[in-house]
Structure formats: structure tokens, C-alpha cells
Nucleic acid binder design. Structure first.
Length: 584
DNA sequence: GCCGTTTTCGGCCCGACTGTTTTCAGTCG
């Protein structure tokens, strides 16, 4: 996480918001939640702000007033917030866990605790199985069933799915429904359209002359395990993978406003509605209204236009400053898939077993040509990574010769580059000698062992690797595996400074489980003037298509062509690499 | 609890659905 203090405080305020909601206190929950979001996205350690500018400096942050500033001060001085501790004592419940169950909110948690003493998921499941829930006031048999189902679902899926597994499924559904007669418009909406790294469920919107026909096709899709809410305007299915898909039929004149509404994010929409109010308008999923008069809604473009701003690409809609820029006509020109000129992090099958890839250089290169790339880098694993049969110096040399041979046959259709994904050892040294690195076009270095080092040591370890003049790229810089492994402990600001100073590029790894750097870190890197590269880490030729996910992640991080070195022409990119090593 | 060319009080985003009710609270997106 960015700054430990900020995150800790944010978590405390999120929980306070829940507690206040439990008690039915109006408006305060919103204030605490807002403060939590602000803290999470703060570009500076709140402790530094407090030390430099004191209580006043904290209070000066928009969204943080007298009362919350006091609690921040208290936390920084004592490590605790009394107001929060008292809530915790009154309701010793794992409120985050409990409310993560679909259909369970703060009010229910309160009843569950006060009547049955339930504090966590396990206890809730037990009570539900024993049939104790149905007799609670305001609860019933159906609620009890829903809670059990919700728990089951949560256990199975962790609640969210990877972008990389959901997007192809959703696109396939979209394609099938598009073919139904009478379908005029169709679009994926929701967090999937914003290309978030994980997806809760899929929303698809459709305009059709014969809605019944679309609904009928929808509930007949292959791989469905459950259908519900089968109405005239909305229908839901659950697929074998456990993900829910909602289909909504929209009146034609409202398609744009519905698409805007269902794409979100929630924060972005709230901000837009406030702007609408300021303009004397009302914005909802049916359109933009002046009084009772419909004034816009057929397309998203006209919705944004009437709110006096540029149309905002879905990936930017997180209320992180995009609205202000759109109002000033200053949105960044974020990159597109077609801007990508090559992929520099790919693995091959070499002499039966080395490097751990599934396809030969030739096969990978053919796919790369089909993708329209101008250059393509092979970044073979190196010797310290035994599990992938990493190459040693001599084997790298052999492989280089093979690449030379293939380049000759390509007649400039594409240039194959000689790279390696070396290992950053525990002390920050590289597992391949400089002499061998010198002969490559570029070198990647990544951490593949000793993930659990202390923060300062891990940071130093990566910085030492970046200081090596032959290391051009740090692969998957934070090491997280979505839903499995947290990032390793690093001081990302220090990493950024070192990357800038040494001219080292940070990778946006497109592998669906990684997507590392994430959107927030990409934006920070861009702001720090650090160059980035989007790579797939493909171990199979079919995985070269993962590029799409890395690009959407980069878009979410506001990256423009100039920020991404593999949007550059080959010469310019190599020149940037060589500047570091003086290799020429 | 926060905020202010509707400034120190009175607002705070909006609508639908579900399950529980018999007119609505809670939850969701």
C-alpha cells in the first residue's frame, strides 16, 4: 500500500462510517467515507503533512474538517482513535467481512449482533444453517436463504473475478446477442467497461425492437447454472465460472444516459450529478432533464456535452481529477492498443526445455507479425530461476545466434530483439555477468525469490539492480498476484526516484493475474516522469493477446504515448536503453 | 461531519428492487 498511516486511518474511517450507518446516523457516514477515500488517494504521507504544517495543514485538506482532523492527530500521536475504539467495543463485529455478503448491510449486522451475538462470517453461516435467522425482526425465510447463498458465493469466488477471465466471456455474449434480430445497440457497461483489474459482475445494455427475443436468447446461453429476475427489462444469469451477468433492455432515447449510469464508477457518477444540479439539470439513467423536460440521453457524448465537458473514456471514470480536466478540455490523450509497436517480455521454448515457454521463436514471431508489431523481444529466463530452466551465459549466446539467423529471414518485416529476464538476487545483484548482458539489446530484471523481505531492504535490493547500467526494465515491479499474493514491501516513492535517476523503465505486466504496476502506481510513475513499458510476459503465443489488458491498465493510469517506451519507434527506444549503459 | 458566488445554517445523488410488510426499510449499483 502507498502510505501505511494513510491506509490505516482510511480503514478506521471506513469502519466508523459503517458503525454510524448501523446506528442510523444520517450524513456522517458519508463524511467519514469521503475522508477515507481522500486519505487513500493522498499523494503524501499524512504524517509528513502533520509534521510540516501541523493540525491546520491536516484540516486544510478538502473533505477533512475539525472533527476528523482531530482524530487524525490523535492517531498520529497515540496510534489510536478513541471514538473508533469505543465503537469497536460496542460492536465487536467484523463488519467488513459481514457486509461483503450480498444483501447484508450495516443495519442487518446490528440486528444479527444484538439478537444473536454474531460477529463474523462463520458464526453467521452457523446461525443461518440452524434456521435462527428467519425469526429475527425484519428477516424472514427468504433472507436466511439469501444469506446462505451469499456466503457460498463469496467463499467460491472471493467475490471478484479477473478482468482477463471475464472480458472474453462477456465479449462472446455481446457478440451472440448482437446477432439477434431487432437489436439496434448493445454495449458492455460496468466496471468491465472501465477495465478494472477485477470484476464483480457483468452488465450488458441493449436497445432492441423485440426485447423478448433478446431475453430469450440471453437465458439460453451456454454455460448457465442459474437464471433469475427474468422480466421484461432486466434478466440475470450466473455462468459456470460463478460470475453473474445482467442484461438490461433500454429505451433508445436513454441508451447514452443508461450507459453512462451503468458504467460508473459510483464516485464519478455522484460528481456528475452534482454538476448537473449546479447547471439546473437532473441526471439519472433515463436521461438529462430540465424540470420534466428530457434534454439529452441518446448517446453518452451528448450527456457529457450538456454537462459542459469532454466525453471521458471509461477507464478514467474514477473521480480522480478527470472531471475537472474534462471541463477544461484538458483530458490526457491516453494510449490505445494500436499505439503499441512491440512486446519485450516474452518467453520461448528453446532446445526442448530452456526458458519455460510453450512455443518456438519462430512461432512467437509469426504471431507478433500478425499483431502488426515492428519489434519483438525475447526475454528468456536466466539461470537462477531453476523452475523455468533459466539460461546461463553460454546458452544465452547460443540463443542470440538463433535470433540473428531468424532476423535475416524476416527482411525487415519485424526486428527480433535479444533480451533476458534476469533475476534480482537477495542482495540486489544480477544472476548474469555484465559481459553477457552487454551482448543483449536490452535486459529486464525481476524479483522471483525472497518475497518477504523487510521494506527498506527490499527497496534497496531493487534500487541496486536499477543502478546496474545494463538493467533497462524492472518486470512486475510490486510482485503482487491478484487474489493470491500481496505486493512485496517496497518504498515506491524511492523506487520512482531511483528509476528516474538511472533511466530505468518500469513494467506494466499484462498477465491477468499480475497487472503490475496497477493503475494508481502507473499514474504516480507518470507524474514522477518515469518511463513505462507494457509487456505481456507471454509463455505461449496465444498469450500475446494479453497486451490488451496491460493497455487498459495503462489507460486507467492516464498513460500517454510518450510515457510508454514500446509506443516509440525502435530507434528511439533503443537509444533510451543505450543511454544508460553507453552500450551502442 | 463537511461545506459555503444559495457562507455559519441547512443542505448533503438518485432510483429500483427485495423482502418484509400493509406503506416501507434496507441494500445495491
Amino acid at each position: 500500500m502507498k502510505f501505511a498511516n494513510n491506509q490505516e486511518l482510511a480503514n478506521i474511517f471506513y469502519e466508523i462510517a459503517y458503525f454510524l450507518e448501523m446506528e442510523g446516523v444520517p450524513f456522517k457516514p458519508y463524511a467519514y467515507e469521503k475522508a477515507a477515500i481522500i486519505l487513500e488517494n493522498l499523494e503524501e504521507d499524512i504524517k509528513d503533512i502533520y509534521q510540516r504544517k501541523g493540525f491546520k495543514g491536516v484540516k486544510a485538506i478538502p473533505g477533512i474538517g475539525e472533527s476528523i482532523a482531530k482524530k487524525i492527530e490523535e492517531y498520529l500521536k497515540t496510534g489510536k482513535v478513541k471514538y473508533y475504539e469505543e465503537f469497536k467495543k460496542r460492536y465487536p463485529v467484523d463488519i467488513e467481512e459481514l457486509t461483503s455478503i450480498e444483501g447484508v448491510g450495516p443495519k442487518m449486522v446490528k440486528v444479527l449482533y444484538e439478537k444473536l451475538g454474531i460477529t463474523n462470517l462463520k458464526e453467521l453461516e452457523k446461525a443461518a444453517r440452524q434456521g435462527k435467522i428467519r425469526n429475527l425482526p425484519g428477516f424472514g425465510k427468504k433472507t436466511e436463504e439469501n444469506i446462505l447463498q451469499g456466503i457460498l458465493f463469496l467463499k467460491k469466488s472471493g467475490g471478484r473475478f479477473l478482468l482477463g477471465e471475464v472480458l472474453p466471456l462477456a465479449q462472446e455474449i455481446e457478440k451472440r446477442l448482437k446477432r439477434v434480430k431487432g437489436v439496434k445497440k448493445i454495449s458492455i457497461a460496468g466496471s468491465l467497461r472501465r477495465r478494472k483489474e477485477t470484476i464483480g459482475d457483468v452488465d450488458i445494455l441493449v436497445v432492441a425492437t423485440k426485447p423478448e427475443a433478446v431475453m430469450e436468447e440471453f437465458v439460453k446461453l451456454p454455460g448457465i447454472i442459474k437464471v433469475w429476475g427474468k422480466g421484461t427489462t432486466k434478466s440475470s444469469i450466473r455462468l459456470e465460472t460463478g460470475i453473474d451477468v445482467d442484461l438490461r433492455v433500454i429505451p433508445e432515447r436513454s441508451f447514452g444516459s443508461a450507459l453512462q449510469y451503468f458504467t460508473g464508477s459510483k464516485d464519478h457518477n455522484i460528481a456528475l450529478r452534482k454538476i448537473a444540479i449546479d447547471l439546473g439539470l437532473k441526471l439519472n439513467e433515463y436521461g438529462v432533464f430540465k424540470g420534466n423536460k428530457f434534454v439529452a440521453g441518446k448517446t453518452e457524448e451528448e450527456v457529457y456535452e450538456i454537462l459542459k465537458m469532454q466525453w471521458i473514456p471509461p477507464e478514467l471514470r474514477e473521480n480522480r481529477g478527470e472531471i475537472e480536466l474534462a471541463q477544461r478540455n484538458r483530458l490526457p490523450e491516453i494510449i490505445e492498443l494500436k499505439d503499441i509497436k512491440g512486446d519485450l517480455h516474452t518467453h520461448i521454448k528453446w532446445k526442448a526445455k530452456w526458458d519455460g515457454g510453450a512455443n518456438t521463436i519462430q512461432e512467437m514471431v509469426e504471431t507478433a507479425i500478425r499483431r502488426g508489431y515492428q519489434y519483438f523481444g525475447i526475454a528468456s529466463h536466466t539461470k537462477a530461476l531453476k523452475i523455468e530452466h533459466g539460461l546461463n551465459e553460454k546458452q544465452l549466446e547460443e540463443r542470440n545466434k538463433e535470433i540473428d539467423k531468424i532476423n535475416k529471414t524476416l527482411e525487415g518485416k519485424l526486428v527480433v530483439l535479444k533480451g533476458a529476464e534476469t533475476n534480482i538476487l537477495k542482495d540486489g545483484s544480477i544472476d548474469i555477468k555484465d559481459e553477457a548482458l552487454k551482448k543483449l539489446d536490452y535486459t529486464i530484471a525481476g524479483i522471483h525469490s525472497h518475497f518477504k523481505m523487510e521494506k527498506s531492504k527490499m527497496t534497496e535490493r531493487i534500487i541496486r539492480a536499477m543502478k546496474n547500467p545494463y538493467i533497462n526494465i524492472i518486470s512486475h515491479p510490486t510482485g503482487r498476484i491478484l487474489k493470491k499474493r500481496d505486493e512485496y514491501q517496497i518504498d515506491f516513492d524511492k523506487i520512482l526516484r531511483a528509476a528516474k535517476e538511472t533511466g530505468t523503465v518500469l513494467e506494466i505486466n499484462s498477465y491477468p493475474e499480475r497487472l503490475d504496476l496497477n493503475d494508481i502506481n502507473i499514474k504516480r510513475a507518470k507524474e514522477a516522469g518515469v518511463k513505462l513499458i507494457i509487456n505481456t510476459d507471454a509463455h505461449h503465443k496465444d498469450q500475446l493477446r494479453y497486451m490488451e489488458f496491460g493497455v487498459s491498465q495503462a489507460r486507467r493510469g492516464w498513460a500517454e504515448k510518450e510515457d510508454i517506451v514500446n509506443c516509440w519507434p525502435l530507434k528511439k527506444m533503443l537509444k533510451f536503453f543505450n543511454k544508460k549503459s553507453k552500450r551502442s
